[in-house]
């Protein structure tokens, strides 16, 4: 299993919104440039521990953050 996953969002504002929601829940969310092969909707994506993907998705949906998808980050 990949160590990290990436939350792809539509805008940088969504990325900041996601970062804020996840950090408030003490999750290790980090903003990174969106890996080019994963998409171009937004220049920034949110990197999270892959093991927390489901929890992150639930938190973000509850908070109303629009996200495109969450994908494993294979390095």
């Amino acid at each position: 299993m990949a160590e990290f996953a990436v939350i792809l969002v539509y805008t940088t504002t969504d990325a900041i919104f996601a970062e804020r929601v996840l950090r408030r829940a003490d999750l290790a969310a980090k903003l990174i440039p969106t890996p080019r092969h994963l998409g171009s909707d937004c220049g920034s994506a949110v990197r999270i521990p892959a093991s927390e993907s489901e929890r992150c998705e639930e938190l973000l949906r509850t908070a109303g953050v629009s996200l495109s998808r969450i994908v494993p980050l294979n390095t």
Binding site: T11, T12, T13, A15, I16, F17, R20, L31, I32, P33, T34, G43, S44
Partner: peptide
């Protein structure tokens, strides 16, 4: 400037804008 680049200062600018939104 916010939204344009993903480096730390651009992201910090976006955080500032988001603070205002919130």
């Amino acid at each position: 400037s916010p939204g344009r680049s993903a480096h730390r200062l651009s992201l910090e600018a976006e955080r500032i804008r988001f603070d205002a939104r919130e």
